[in-house]
Amino acid sequence: MTDGAPVNGSVLLTHEVGLHARPSVKLTKLAKGFSSKIELAAAEGGPWIDAKSIVKVMAAKAPKHTVLHFRAEGPDAEEAVAALIDLVASDFPEQPSESVAR
């Protein structure tokens, strides 16, 4: 079921406010949808934090122009890293299910 090899990926954070509250929630929600273990770091050498932990992701406070590194391990590791990179690269688009005031 698992093929062992960790999957890595990185992406430049271009979101104006960086990895603040709303982007953090989106990233965490997306990560939670995968069964793989997923970690995130704001520098290549870490420290690595659990991408499914909203408190840790928000506490990382990654500013704009940070290169975010992801690594995942598990059955859907590849899809997970691809989806997370896509979320960051596409600048955290609003999901249709979310109502946006203003």
């Binding site: 509250a21 965490t28 949808g33 909203i54 408190v55």
Partner: peptide, 20 residues
């Protein structure tokens, strides 16, 4: 409330939600 709801959204248990 935001942290707890995010954790709850992912299907966490009550204890996990509270701890988050």
């Amino acid at each position: 409330a935001v942290m707890a709801a995010t954790e709850a959204w992912g299907g966490a248990t009550l204890d996990e939600v509270r701890r988050t």
